[in-house]
Design a protein around this nucleic acid. Structure first.
Lengths: 334, 334
DNA sequence: TTGTAGGCGTTATCAC
DNA sequence: GTGATAACGCCTACAA
């Protein structure tokens, strides 16, 4: 592979001049610069970023570590991060942990060893270990799920969103809403559960909560049981789009029609939410903006701008009413 | 940041011994090795991968470049790649080009400069320029969309899949199938169009084809026009899941019921395909396996195993019949 | 078995 | 304005 000294030889200048010309830094004689560029072009010279990073003691690369590449929320976050990063001259490397702590740890370790310029992480759990990047003084921004320790953090208003959702179900006349959520060590979905519980408690209603692990049937079993029980709920709040999918599958199998037999609302406005029947009501998160804001915050940290103490940004959520949470007027109470 | 010489100092050995102990290569006195490990641990030593890569003249990183992170086909490919890579000790960096040639070129350039061990690329177009990685002698495997030039390639049997799909529509009694596809410089979807055309031609039916650019309304406009015309099709083949989404949205708006007024079948078994109403019939691609095979092929290239000339693997597709392509028996011909 | 020394490719510093 | 030189952190002959 052609290196800088080859170009130098061909252009009949020193390696230093080649470097200066190619990085159009400092003043270089235009004639020499032209010769250098021509030689580089002809030899197909491609700077070795590994060597450059070593010498410069830094990279132009960010790691974005997310837990589920299939989740439309995270892919939208990724877009937001990427667009801002591009503008600022960084490349984004996307790492998918599949909700697996081991994979997450490994990616964090790789990021630290590769000396990336910064890391944006959607952690698996609120006690995730991020010491590998922190001890390397690599700027770190957490998105979506809050860590127990204080650190830069961008997320959506989960509690308030769940309150909106649950209150909307009740306003529609549903009387036994249940909350289908994720394991209790997932900070964000816990906020959603709490929001739900806050509302049902205030209304004197029972709290019906089910926790569904990641990587299972996405709640099919849980819903089967729940609606096979003596006193089933009459409506559902699901805390993410994958759960909504599982729940809809299960209800369909049981012959329960959403928007008639059961009310339903979910977090995350997936692209399929409008084509299911009836269209799914959702609490939309500003996912793209969460990514973009996280990226801007990270960029500031890298440039050592702004206040030093950990920042927290909480972006507001939006209720989008579609057909799935409607309740027929003439329906008698269960 | 603590480096190898710091550990050497603390463990009272030479840097070389630290290196050997930490890479548990060669023979190292167990006592010294223990001292080294202890010192490394205590100082929080983290090997500098940049320096290591430079010295070793190679990395343990693959770049996987896909065109659309929202497309469930590509995310499944990514999973396949990742699982195999992990097994072999490589990290996978996922890059999303958003169907943008410029972004693709930039990622290829970055991959080449960062001297990644290998690249797996789902190219935007069949004339995509991959010279940046090729001139760097970086092993390259193409997935999904064939390039004009000969190069390692893994894909699904698109032509045959489209034939299956179209023939199934006709077997169901539909008489004017149309094909909603992508721009003509996308090799894979062209194969699907050709498969469709092959069948309708053999049956003496008109070929009704519409090309929908990436990044638009995903076909809503096209469908609106098509069904507003004098002689609309009675059924549809869409060549990817995003198009299916757009088409379903449009049909819904026009009050056309799939599986009654219109027959529909699509490529790609998205996770929402079973929850829409009626459930969507699909031609499923073995996306995970495509990724896994591409990864295995790449690994062989890196190890310089196997035959030298470009390999092509074409994996078979599966017809999954659900409700969307049914045609009511008692329906009179248009 | 351990240490010394050189070099991976680049760029920043320093004379010229 | 240009060229020689050193150094980024690590690994690996080679010598001891």
């Amino acid at each position: 592979m052609v290196k800088i000294s080859d170009v130098a030889l061909a252009a009949n200048v020193s390696a230093a001049t080649v470097s200066r010309a190619l990085n159009n830094s400092a003043r270089v004689d235009p004639v020499l610069a032209a010769r250098v560029h021509a030689a580089a072009q002809q030899l197909g010279y491609r700077p070795n970023a590994v060597a450059r990073n070593l010498r410069r003691q830094g990279t132009q690369v960010w790691a974005l570590i997310i837990t589920d590449i299939n989740n439309p929320f995270y892919t939208a976050v990724a877009r937001g991060v990427e667009d801002v990063a591009q503008e600022l001259g960084f490349s984004v490397l996307l790492c998918n942990t599949d909700e697996d702590q081991t994979k997450q740890d490994r990616y964090l370790e790789v990021a630290a060893q590769e000396r990336v310029a910064g890391v944006i992480l959607a952690p698996r759990a609120d006690d995730s270990d991020v010491s590998s990047v922190q001890s390397g003084n690599i700027p770190l921004v957490i998105v979506d799920r809050r860590l127990a320790q204080p650190v830069d953090f961008v997320t959506a208003a989960s509690f308030e969103g769940a309150v909106m959702a649950t209150e909307h179900l009740l306003r529609q006349g549903w009387q036994r809403p249940a909350c289908i959520t994720r394991p209790a060590d997932t900070a964000t979905t816990e906020q959603r559960r709490l929001g739900y519980e806050d509302v049902v408690r205030r209304h004197g209603l029972p709290s019906i909560v089910r926790h569904v692990p990641f990587h299972t049937d996405s709640g099919v079993d849980v819903i089967n049981k729940l609606f096979g029980s003596a006193d089933p709920p009459d409506s559902l709040l699901t805390v993410d789009a994958m759960l909504a999918l599982g729940v809809m599958t299960s209800l369909k199998r049981q012959g329960l029609k959403i928007g008639r037999d059961v009310g339903m609302i979910s977090f995350d406005d997936a692209d399929w939410a409008t084509v299911v029947e009836p269209p799914l009501s959702v609490i939309a998160q500003p996912a793209y903006e969460i990514g973009a804001e996280a990226a801007r915050l990270l960029a500031r940290r890298i440039k050592k701008e702004g206040p030093e103490d950990p920042q927290t940004m909480i972006m507001s959520t939006t209720l989008i009413v579609r057909g799935s949470c409607q309740r027929p007027k003439a329906r008698k109470t269960r």
